[in-house]
Design a binder for these strands. Sequence first.
DNA 1: GATGAATGAGTCTTCATTCAT
DNA 2: AATGAATGAAGACTCATTCAT
Lengths: 185, 185, 185, 185
Amino acid sequence: MKKPNARERILETASELFHRRGYSEVGINEIIAKAETAKASFYQHYPSKEVLCEAWLSHLHERSEAGRKAILESQSSPAEKVEAYFDHLSAFMHESDFRGCPYSNTGAVSDEGCQGIVREIRGHKQSIRDFFHKICREAFSNSERADQIGDRIFLLYSGAAIEAQNLREDWPILAAREAAVEMLA
Amino acid sequence: MKKPNARERILETASELFHRRGYSEVGINEIIAKAETAKASFYQHYPSKEVLCEAWLSHLHERSEAGRKAILESQSSPAEKVEAYFDHLSAFMHESDFRGCPYSNTGAVSDEGCQGIVREIRGHKQSIRDFFHKICREAFSNSERADQIGDRIFLLYSGAAIEAQNLREDWPILAAREAAVEMLA
Amino acid sequence: MKKPNARERILETASELFHRRGYSEVGINEIIAKAETAKASFYQHYPSKEVLCEAWLSHLHERSEAGRKAILESQSSPAEKVEAYFDHLSAFMHESDFRGCPYSNTGAVSDEGCQGIVREIRGHKQSIRDFFHKICREAFSNSERADQIGDRIFLLYSGAAIEAQNLREDWPILAAREAAVEMLA
Amino acid sequence: MKKPNARERILETASELFHRRGYSEVGINEIIAKAETAKASFYQHYPSKEVLCEAWLSHLHERSEAGRKAILESQSSPAEKVEAYFDHLSAFMHESDFRGCPYSNTGAVSDEGCQGIVREIRGHKQSIRDFFHKICREAFSNSERADQIGDRIFLLYSGAAIEAQNLREDWPILAAREAAVEMLA
DNA sequence: GATGAATGAGTCTTCATTCAT
DNA sequence: AATGAATGAAGACTCATTCAT
């Protein structure tokens, strides 16, 4: 029984599982079973579980970058842009039963030995930080102050994601959003 | 070869290992080996790994509560109290090579099935949130505004911890601290 | 279904399998199946397949040393001692369907990374070499000449074992025995 | 990307790898990767790993036969011919970091099921035996005695190869050579 | 209160081979 | 003549837990 597109099916399945339950909690066996693939087919496409994890984070990052780009290019005000991004976060959290940030969650179980994974995490985080910096530079004439506020919103954003996960509540997202908007006023 | 205090040695060993590498990444075998205990002795004291995890988080919480109590009872201003707590965080992060928050890290690999663990996490987080609320109520006459600012500082605090871990840098802690102080001005 | 003495059963089973088919050709699964043990029981007693291999070779060496000791302590002439040892070899080869020398066979699939295994092999070989040296010193007044002849008999012995294996014939053992006796005449 | 001579590249690559690490320790994947060939191309040229092994041994045998033929046809004395062959062995061992005899090493991991491989091994060994027989017939008028001495030199030769490998020393080759020359005196 | 031996189910990864194109 | 994707079986090893003593 030959199944084409194993590569894609594996990535899709793993994305779902890694996100919902965490990278370290999902085994190759479960992935290939759900993806209906043979184990050796898996390793033909991904040399290791770690590389699959990188592919997942990288793929997620691309989509997430596109979302930020769309917001940046919109005609909205800085505050509206920030609001839009927090609304994205809120939707994302509800979709995934408050599983939090895939990057932070993965970072929690990856030591410095997982170089590729760590690179993906840092790249993603820096990208979000840059996003807030850009928005704040639209709002503030002083670029130093803009970056400072951008960092604060970035931290509020991260804190909101992690605490919404920990508490299984969405007030952190709303509170962070409100704080961010206030900072841009 | 009788080893007294097996219970304590196990908890100490597990605390160190869980914190540095993560609950899911540390096995029972490693714990009992480092604690120089027999496997059956382990299960005599802790019926499961999960219960050991709860004991770890609970013990950590007690010490952390004591720290917050001391700060609250100090003669410092609200801003100074917040600064003191962020300084604690900074020291904690440096001590542990930026391993982040034990509670959030554990939450990243625990599903809702781990009721005891989840309870510890939520209790701890709520406790920190309360701590900031109390400080803010000293600073603001309007208690609603106080809680709002307290929540924001709580989120900055969480965000700082997680991003210091992700980026292995300490600017998030400094930036969050600065933001918190500004909010209390 | 608890089975005591797993450790011994594993060693016995592995000894048989490693000898008949070769260290690299026998998997842990087969060993534990034949020994009727759980996989984890295996690893409780032997931290790795490599260590099991060392235990096998070491155990074999002890028995083999005892045999040489008995020959050395016998009242036979040097030639008779050598004959006795070659007769041992002949019997051993017939017993095992001409599977040759376990040490040489294992050396054929072990690189220098397998330090423990290599140590066992070299120790065993040196022990046989010493054995022939001792016998020859009984036969020759010149100890240098004795060691020289001892080395030659050692090499004849090794060559006989390997070629009896390769050819599945026993003439090599008979020929080597004859040559050795002639050297002692 | 068309790669001509895939067949030859595969054989060359496999020869090197089989010799250095042993037939059973080298996988098809490694061979095709190093030979820069596709997996299916491999199976187009060699229906199985076993057949590739036979091709390797057969090819090696041809070159080795040529060497023996050259020695036999030389104008040297029997003792010189034997010396030349042991010198070949010495050079071969040093070139390959004392990996020993490819045929004996392969025999150590091949059961009687591998008919083709076993045939190659036996053919090769018999060929070397014949070689020594021929040389000894030049040296001895009594052809029975000649074959007897030839067999002894053959066994010394085999023993030297295997023990040089086991001990990673070259004294066995020198000792066997010396013994062989003495036998021809 | 303490122990070492035993366990089944799981981990990630590699094997030699075959398929459709 | 060449290819990349697919495969089932097996590889060594670890998991958290339970047992009898």
